[in-house]
Nucleic acid binder design. Structure first.
Lengths: 153, 153
DNA sequence: CTTTTGGTTCAAAATATACAGAACTAAAAT
DNA sequence: ATTTTAGTTCTGTATATTTTGAACCAAAAG
């Protein structure tokens, strides 16, 4: 696939973004490619060739992306190839997961608070405050999504 | 420092949480220790001995934690030691930073949208929708914190 | 002025991760 | 029946990360 320099650069930037989320570079670049590719469904070999990665790396990365959620594939009768595509519609879920990662720290903080002596009042009240806000977020974030959905009808 | 098995386990769990955020294991464990330690200020050697890490690893990790924000140290006149402690009060900032990481993806998505042909209508409208919600979040999240602050007065 | 304390810095070892290349497989095409 | 396609899986290697240990340093203590 022919890509402009600009798109290649975007792929790298998106790749780095996903690397920072703990993804391997190749998988991050695949995400990048899927975002910028004009056709939304790409074959194994298109991905491999465009990104210059080996078959094995392509295979491993695609399967990882499928397992962890952001990618799926579709097939067509009489065509053995898989057509890989972003589950773009999935952004609600992936966002929710990222927020949950943040909010889940709450349970560790609660364990901490239970395990701590209550000598360090200042510290403990800071902890309580933090836990409290995470609790609030846990409740309010889903409402925020609903409010947004409402607002755009 | 003598720690119960339970606290040791908590340190590891907190360590893993921070590892997932891209921190090195030793630094993550230091965070864990600082959360569970009864005394909120710990010396270099207390940290080193309790966690069984080398001086160099301790030094590097502590400096990293200081640079990136979550830790600070205080000193006392006539005492050469530094007393390292969590900037617990800092949770607002660190939360804000984590939310910004999520929201900043918006700028990449905007670049993507500009670079894309408008053939893939479905895909593009999904992108637009996502960008839109990130925009909404960017505006609403700070308000959520304010609302929470109000509610607890 | 020598030793101790509270670290820092550097080189090297240990470990973990990511990737390539080759061998393999099952289904389809020739 | 052989070849091609569309991958998968299994080493091995390259690379990056993390940690240690040892040397070093400046300030304070003896």
């Amino acid at each position: 696939m022919a890509l402009t320099e600009h798109k290649k650069a975007l792929i790298e930037k998106i790749g780095i973004f996903y690397e920072k989320l703990g993804m391997q570079p190749a998988a991050g670049r695949i995400m990048g490619l899927m975002f910028v590719a004009d056709r939304p469904e790409l074959t194994f070999d298109e991905i491999r060739e465009t990104l210059n990665i080996s078959k094995s790396a392509t295979s491993t990365a695609l399967n990882l992306l499928i397992e962890t959620g952001p990618v799926e594939y579709i097939t067509f009768a009489g065509d053995r190839k898989r057509y890989f595509k972003l589950k773009t519609s999935n952004w609600r879920d992936s966002l929710a997961q990222r927020f949950n990662n943040i909010i889940n720290f709450k349970s560790l903080l609660i364990e901490v608070l239970e395990a701590r002596s209550d000598k360090a009042t200042e510290f403990n009240s800071c902890l309580t405050e933090f836990i409290d806000f995470l609790e609030y977020l846990q409740h309010e974030l889903p409402l925020l999504l609903k409010k947004w959905e409402e607002s755009r009808k």
